[in-house]
């Protein structure tokens, strides 16, 4: 096999969390809003119909929150808004003016430490492909803050909005049960 050498290096093109800001002249009126995202105030000019999910992923460059169905059916886009879990795909960014948003990127106390639930997910191997994981963790944090989940059955009931197709469900519940203790 001959290895062809590319003068163009695709890896060098990948910029980590590069903010992808709107590039074109807008024909639509945009609205200026301020959100606090993971503790940092963010001023955004967004069109009125931009979902919070797209605002996070495309305007701020936080791609940890995942797009799964755009219809609130799978839970992959779950984030915390003023401490409560919400589906960011069903939420308009403009409706959250002034709100405090926490995404998966903002839950660990530092770059060297993890949130207890993140640790519990690692401890319990609570994933396979990991795509649903950010939504699962944010949803679990929100659920624990609601204070309604005490037993395994209650956790299952209250987490039932988050889908996992790999079948890692048992370990995800195990991880969350550790969070309750």
């Amino acid at each position: 096999m001959s290895f062809c050498v590319y003068t163009f290096n695709p890896a060098a093109m990948l910029t980590e969390n590069a903010p992808i800001l709107p590039k074109t002249e807008r024909s639509f009126d945009t609205k200026s809003i301020t959100l606090t995202v993971n503790g940092k105030p963010r001023e955004l000019n967004v069109m009125p119909w931009v979902s919070l999910l797209d605002a996070l992923r495309e305007y701020i460059g936080l791609t940890g929150t995942k797009k799964g169905c755009d219809h609130g059916q799978c839970g992959a886009c779950t984030v915390l808004c003023d401490g409560k879990r919400i589906l960011s795909c069903l939420t308009l960014a403009t409706m959250k003016e002034g709100a405090e948003i926490t995404t998966i990127e903002g839950i660990a106390p530092s770059d060297t430490d993890l949130h207890p639930l993140q640790k519990a997910f690692i401890e319990n191997d609570a994933f396979q492909c990991g795509y649903c994981t950010p939504g699962q963790i944010c949803s679990a944090i929100g659920m624990l803050q609601e204070g309604k989940a005490h037993s395994r059955e209650e956790v299952k009931e209250l987490m039932s909005g988050n889908l996992c197709r790999c079948g890692a469900n048992v370990y995800i519940i195990d991880a969350i049960m550790e969070g309750i203790k």
Binding site: M13, L14, E16, A18, G64, I122, G130, P134
Partner: peptide
């Protein structure tokens, strides 16, 4: 990387 949701998936690729 998964629990921190660092860009890992093709869905998260961003280029200038």
């Amino acid at each position: 990387q998964m629990v921190r949701a660092q860009a890992l998936y093709v869905q998260d690729l961003r280029m200038p």
